[in-house]
């Protein structure tokens, strides 16, 4: 019994020491505690008047600033995506924001928010950073983007939103209510 505890403890301590330093040295290392606000509605963004915003998601020539996302610059050097509610999502829909559906292709084809494009998160993550940039080249870096998925417990909208922000999109919004909430309110959808 003693041997089990002793040997286990040695292995654990070695692993923890290497994990700690390995994580610091790893360029993709993560902080010990994650950002709690990542999956919650941000209460501080309510003062942004989305209705006065002009937007053209395909204007890559001027890359005009459509809306200041209001998200702060992160340590990693990208503008933090904002989590938004249904009302805000509808306003961004009305000003021609680019809706991106992060779900799988089959789910997207069954039904999605009207005009949304499909970027399955898992497929997106298989690409290299350069391939991701190339794929997103046709979109305005400063245009309003709204990522969503099913709503409820799904997180691909959030995870995809952060990946888009990391490759230089400055106004990424994440609509946590997702497709199910949107559809239940009778807002425009496209269904098979």
């Amino acid at each position: 019994m003693k041997a089990i505890l002793k040997e286990s403890l040695i292995v654990i301590i070695i692993a923890i020491i290497f994990a700690f330093f390995g994580n610091i040295l790893n360029p993709k290392g993560i902080s010990l505690f994650p950002d709690e606000t990542r999956y919650k509605i941000d209460s501080t963004n309510n003062n942004i008047d989305y209705s006065k915003v002009w937007n053209d998601p395909y204007d890559t020539v001027n890359n005009k600033v459509a809306v200041l996302s209001g998200g702060e610059m992160t340590k990693e050097g990208y503008i933090k995506p904002q989590n938004i509610n249904l009302t805000q999502a509808k306003t961004l829909f009305d000003i021609n924001g680019l809706f991106i559906d992060g779900r799988k292709k089959e789910e997207f084809e069954k039904g999605h928010i009207k005009g949304a494009i499909n970027i399955p998160y898992e497929e997106f993550m298989k690409l290299t950073v350069d391939q991701r940039k190339e794929m997103m080249r046709k979109y305005n870096k400063n245009g309003v983007i709204v990522c969503y998925c099913d709503g409820g417990g799904c997180d691909v909208s959030v995870d995809l939103g952060y990946e888009l922000a990391k490759i230089g999109f400055n106004s990424v919004n994440i609509y946590l209510g997702g497709y199910s909430e949107w559809k239940s309110k009778g807002y425009p959808v496209e269904e098979k």
Partner: peptide, 9 residues
């Protein structure tokens, strides 16, 4: 952070 290193060692 820790589990992968634990697996490795």
């Amino acid at each position: 952070i820790i589990i992968p290193y634990l697996e490795f060692f």
